[in-house]
Design a protein around this nucleic acid. Sequence first.
DNA 1: AAAAAAC
Length: 538
Amino acid sequence: MSEPAATDDKTSSPPPPPAQHKSWADEADDDAEAANETTAPTTAVPSSSSPSLNVDELSIDENKKPPKLLDDPEDSNIQAVRSLSLQSRLLRLAISQLLNFSSARVYTFLTFVDSVQVTSGDTPYTSAATFEDLNLSAELLRGLYVEMRFQKPSKIQAISLPMILNPPHRDLIAQAHNGSGKTTCFVLGMLSRVDPSVQAPQALCICPTRELAIQNTEVLRKMGKHTGISSECAVPTDSRDSLPIQKREPIKAQVVIGTPGTIKKWISFKKLGVTRLKILVFDEADQMLAEDGFKDDSLRIMKEIEKFNSSCQVLLFSATFNDIVKNFVERTVKKDHNKLFVKKEELSLDAVKQYKVRCPDELSKIEVIKDYIFELGENVGQTIIFVRTRQSAKMLHKSLVDMGYEVTSIQGALDHEERDKIVKEFRDGLTQVLISTDVLARGFDQQQVNLVINYDLPIKHTAEYTREFEPDYEVYLHRVGRAGRFGRKGAVFNLIYDEKDERLMSKIENHFGTRVSEVREKSVEDYKAALKEAGLLQ
DNA sequence: AAAAAAC
């Protein structure tokens, strides 16, 4: 039995919640109109400034030992930051001027082993060393240990769960590495905040793709198996076998997980009530709130909930938040939110070894895939090949099938049924190699995937009139993150063939501060060596 | 110039 670490902190009565601004929809409104303008609105409360500028110190209980440093590369820095209410800001300002300190309090803690206490504003949070520390129900603990086979909270879980579960239930923006267990954070949050005696939607989770919504629903059902909590997956169905929403009874499920369009539709048809909602989650929140993502849908849903229910806790989770979306996202939630961020340099997964392969032409990309990667791939686990367009997904699929290889491919133009089937076959291990557009770039969790091939590199489609292509760093990171789930080993091969690719690749290297080594010679032995280096072969 | 959702 592991020693329960410092749970006594909980017993010290938490101070009353400070006055809260609950007008998050209003905030969102402002932003929607002033999308790109940066001038501070009215009397600028020195809003939660960029952490890197104001990193001050970790506020640790004096009686506690300081956090120990781990040299585990995975256990990299997370910054815990708290936006302060106006009152406490003014108070801090007064004090700090007296003491000649910086006025913004930004709490950062590096790594921890057992227990860290973070004081956020005036609320102390003790990280959870064990799941028992979280006061979860016995049924939920059983789900964690027996169904999920979890032993103890991962780092992001240890830090974020106390903030999610304990009053005053502040909004939270949380960033954590791919495969580090973000889903568990919000699924556990939703399950434990539901009142089992109320048969109405109390938790809502919105995801960018059908596949992710289904996956999250499955995780929730597994983890919540013994709780009796009901759930519904709100994704489009092929009209044949299901009643149109107009004719359905209002949703009674206590947790609803789905994609924006369907959720919007259900709400507008009054089939999904929002008045009892206690917690609203955006998975892949940076994409959900990006200009070229689901911003409009997300804000509309937020506003609709706010209209009837001002005390709904909002959680925003993602592995990536670029500066632009980060800035916006922080103004979308209530002002006194908590936030956890990871430094950019810390994000690239050290567990996944990155390679580039220079190919003389487009055709030779296919040669590389079949001659080397397929040759070795099957000893290595499953493989996802990412392509930029639906067209290339079809094209590559056809070429490989024509050559006699057993691969499948998925992209958004396929029927829902077909998509579900292909994902299921891949999950069941019936297929070894899956070609995919960026539908599966984010969140798709299949632990057997050890190899990712970037058939082409992700490109940012900004409205700028530049000739220069910009890589989509976030998508790159998410793609890479499909391998190496939960700290496993993995490898990525980036296939590049022209000047454009070269520039994209080096920009990616610069951005993440990593060097991507090249597989030079063209022989099976070289790929073997690369996979050995990645830890995938002996 | 893409993909995602969904009308």
